[in-house]
Every structure is written in structure tokens, then in C-alpha cells.
Computed example of a mutant assay.
Amino acid sequence: MDNPLIKQQEEYNRITDLVNLIKSNPDPRELKRALAIKMSIERQSDEIITQILGVSKSFIRDWKKAFKAEGIAGIKLGYQGAKGKLTSEQRIEIIEWLKNKDYWHLDELMNHLEDKYDVVYKSKQSYYDLFEQGRVSWKRSQKVNPKFDEDLVKKKRTEINNFLAKHKTEIELGKMVVVFIDECHLLGGDVCGYVWGETNARIEVPIKNEKDRQTYFGALNYQTLIVYH
């Protein structure tokens, strides 16, 4: 049977080692790992830890697991990724990690490789290659109105088609004029830029309204196709 006093002493020694590592002015990567573990032991929430240290929740989980299994040796540099490059298995993990994300940032990928695998590439092209294998490419984002409702559009389209069919004779005889009105905006700026996104997916940025613009209205006669400004 395990002696609870011995287990308590072992846990105390592990935490002491952790505190000593923090005080020793270690490599920033080791320090970040140690601080995340210590804050978690002190019952700080993952949300607070991620905000203060700028790490992900998976970062906290992975290094807590390594510390529990190997003690202070588990979070020292060289414990993972000692060769400075990804193994085939690690590369597959990274590709899956990229595929399961909704948004991508180069800095996040760089930090993820350094924090979890202790890998830092000299050339950014190596990171771009990972993005490409994960079917993520550099493309221009497109704005989209979050209030757009496809069902309402279909309903309105049906109403218009029914109206035109009902009054077809009057329109053709010139007794009724149907005019379609639209507007265009000259914008003073463009909020959309280039971002990382899935190769075959459109990157949309929700925009309800844009400032600094001038609006012009125009109309189209449904029967004669004459345009009015």
C-alpha cells in the first residue's frame, strides 16, 4: 500500500523543484511552461493563465501532463523535439491541428511548434509548407453581412415573381411601370486584407456597416430596361 506521507513528500519536492527552476532565470520557454504549471497548481483558471502567459489551454494541459509523468525533467528543453525538427508523427499531428482550426495565424503556428515540440525553423518557408499541407493558403478576405437571411431573400423573390406574373398584361401594355431600385457605395477605405485560410474556402469578414462612404441610387425599368440615375 502506498504511504500517503511519502507521496505528500514527493509532491512537495516536485513543487520545490518547479519553484527553483522559475527562480533560476531559465530559458523563456522553460519559464513559461513552469509558470503555467505552477499557476495551475495554485488553482488559477485556464482562462487567467492563457491571458497572462499568452498560451493556449492545450499548452497548459500538455505540460501539466509532462510534469506529472516526468517531474521537472519533463518540461526541460530537449525533452521533446530535441533534434530541432518534426518527426513524421509530429508533422501529422500538426496537420490535423491545422485542419481542426477555424482561424490561422503564422505566429500561433510558430509558438505552437516551439512550445509543444521545441522546434524553431530558420526560414518561414518551413511554416508555409505546413500550412500548404494542412490545405491553408494566404488569401484575401471577403466581407459578408451577418444579418443576411437566405430564407427571407427566397421569400421576397417569390413575392416579386408572383406580383410580376399577376400584372404581366398591365406591364406589357404600359399601364403599369415596375422599377427596380438599387444603390451603390463609394467607400473611403477597405477593411478586408489578406489572411491564412482553407485553400478552397472563401474567407468572410462580418460587416454590418462601413463609415466614410457616399451613396448613389439608381433604378431600372423592368419593361424597357431603361436605367435612371
Score class of each variant (00 low, 15 high):
residue 189 G to E: 10
residue 58 S to E: 13
residue 170 E to M: 12
residue 132 E to V: 08
residue 20 N to S: 14
residue 154 K to L: 13
residue 207 I to W: 04
residue 33 R to Q: 06
residue 86 L to G: 09
residue 113 L to D: 05
residue 116 K to V: 06
residue 69 A to Q: 15
residue 18 L to D: 03
residue 81 G to F: 01
residue 115 D to L: 12
residue 109 L to Y: 07
residue 197 G to N: 12
residue 194 Y to E: 07
residue 19 V to P: 05
residue 46 D to T: 11
residue 115 D to M: 10
residue 178 V to H: 03
residue 105 H to V: 05
residue 201 A to I: 12
residue 117 Y to C: 15
residue 169 T to D: 14
residue 32 K to Q: 13
residue 102 D to E: 15
residue 122 K to C: 08
residue 97 W to A: 03
residue 88 S to W: 01
residue 185 H to R: 11
residue 152 L to E: 08
residue 30 E to L: 05
residue 210 E to D: 04
residue 193 G to E: 03
residue 36 A to S: 14
residue 180 F to D: 10
residue 67 F to L: 03
residue 158 T to V: 13
residue 155 K to T: 05
residue 114 E to F: 04
residue 43 R to V: 05
residue 189 G to N: 09
residue 171 I to A: 02
residue 227 V to W: 02
residue 209 N to M: 06
residue 118 D to Q: 11
residue 144 V to E: 14
residue 171 I to G: 03
residue 20 N to Y: 12
residue 106 L to Y: 09
residue 138 W to P: 00
residue 104 W to G: 03
residue 154 K to V: 07
residue 67 F to A: 02
residue 83 K to S: 05
residue 1 M to F: 11
residue 48 I to L: 03
residue 159 E to H: 01
residue 38 K to W: 10
residue 119 V to L: 01
residue 74 G to R: 08
residue 9 Q to M: 09
residue 151 D to G: 12
residue 217 F to S: 09
residue 50 T to F: 02
residue 13 N to P: 01
residue 215 T to Y: 04
residue 171 I to N: 04
residue 193 G to T: 05
residue 57 K to F: 01
residue 73 A to S: 10
residue 207 I to T: 13
residue 82 A to K: 13
residue 212 D to R: 12
residue 219 A to F: 01
residue 209 N to E: 15
residue 6 I to K: 15
residue 80 Q to M: 11
residue 42 E to M: 09
residue 59 F to G: 01
residue 199 T to W: 03
residue 31 L to M: 13
residue 79 Y to H: 11
residue 122 K to I: 11
residue 53 L to G: 05
residue 171 I to W: 05
residue 189 G to F: 12
residue 179 V to Q: 05
residue 123 S to L: 08
residue 227 V to Q: 04
residue 49 I to N: 02
residue 121 Y to K: 10
residue 228 Y to C: 07
residue 182 D to L: 09
residue 191 V to N: 00
residue 31 L to Q: 13
residue 58 S to W: 06
residue 185 H to C: 09
residue 82 A to Q: 09
